[in-house]
Nucleic acid binder design. Structure first.
Lengths: 225, 225
DNA sequence: TAGTGTGAATGGATTCACAGCC
DNA sequence: GGCTGTGAATCCATTCACACTA
């Protein structure tokens, strides 16, 4: 599928998801084609960057016209692997876990939550809020469920001190990729990709950027914007 | 504070947060010093990268010894701006908002949630779950509350179709940085930094990486790992 | 005319390699 | 011996510029 298996830059892959999101919006608005310039304006990227990114995977554009929105959506979905449905599981039925299991955005992209696990004996067997077909399972079910439901991706939403242990068990059970919410560095075999979101770290990054643009320093607020 | 206001690469800033997280762990374990090599091993980075990152801000290391853990923690906190407390607010008291308002990790890093807003009239005035001191406020309170509580950062956890409107109102109210959970590109003035987390996009990225390392293609699973 | 695809040029970030210090 | 700080070299990603096409 890719043009001849050269190496594709990681930033390109990240942007592909953004292109897709924007293209899906255009599709809703019944736009049939879009140029790299227009896409770039919406996403604050240069047009040449978009063309180069897409060119890694083939030639989809029509000179003078632009890209076909529908075709490009299918293509990017295929590249990213979301043209098929992925079964996913969730470990950790706390506050965050509950919110994630209720989130509709996953299913919209083809990620189907098919199992929820927790280590708290009091929670085992209780239904998952906002997804009444699922019951919370014990971690001892992990291997069997992963095999039976052909699950490749897992969301890890347990507290920091349990995260590494849970991650190890996920990998042992056959999980191939982990979406990690615990504020720790998971130490896993390199073949198991990990995508981490550390909520507090993100805020920290914001606070830095805010201070850059607003040199408040050690004094009280100076309100000359 | 920085060594003479040269430009600091964005990736360096991102890594600073990871260094800090790791250093705080070492601090718990009562490690007094750490070398760039050790830090690098834990975070899967090269030692020279860590030294270069830190050198942007001054000279903290001792040749032959390494870096003083406690001192480096204070320094990075100061650089990132988290040596002081930031008041933050949250808009959107749905599932995700509830989980975020219950999250302890923010306070641990010095981010104090002091107000929660929602547009649903039925929710106005009800207490915030897991934070009984706060009551959900209407968006019309925004300007006043931001001013009175000196809030600079906002978490935007409203549905996609409301996100841009809410973001505009946040900026108008004086918010300086937005942590955005809606799966849309916010179009804001460049001076207002935005840090976005799109949960579905992250899973998409994972699915791509999994397919890279596990060429399953269009056939059934091939189980020669 | 409007817009793609792509080699060449540029710009940034990472790694190397080593002088200097504990 | 162990480790930092930093110029130089390398590597990688982005942007430029233009031939080419509808």
């Amino acid at each position: 599928m890719t043009k001849n298996d050269q190496h594709i830059p990681a930033p390109t892959i990240r942007r592909l998801s953004l292109y897709l999101r924007q293209l899906e919006m255009l599709w809703m608005e019944e736009k049939k084609t879009v140029s790299s310039k227009d896409l770039g304006k919406a996403l604050r990227l240069t047009d040449s960057q978009i063309r180069k990114d897409l060119a890694y995977f083939g030639q989809f554009g029509q000179p003078g016209i632009g890209y076909d929105v529908g075709e490009l959506i299918s293509t990017i979905r295929h590249i990213l692997g979301t043209d098929q449905t992925w079964n996913i599981l969730l470990v950790g039925a706390g506050n965050l876990g509950a919110a994630l299991s209720a989130y509709r955005g996953f299913a919209k992209k083809g990620f189907q939550l098919v199992a929820v696990f927790d280590s708290d004996p009091k929670k085992i067997g209780t239904p998952v809020p906002a997804n009444r077909e699922l019951k919370i399972q014990p971690l001892t079910d992990l291997n069997q469920t992963v095999r039976e439901r052909d699950i490749r991706l897992a969301i890890n939403a347990v507290p920091a001190d349990a995260a590494q242990d849970v991650a190890d068990r996920l990998v042992a059970a056959g999980i191939r990729g982990i979406f990690n919410f615990a504020p720790v560095n998971l130490d896993l075999a390199a073949e198991v990709p990990v995508s981490s979101v550390d909520l507090a770290v993100q805020l920290e990054q914001l606070s830095f950027q805010v201070r850059l643009s607003a040199p408040v320093d050690d004094r009280d607020q100076a309100d000359h914007a």
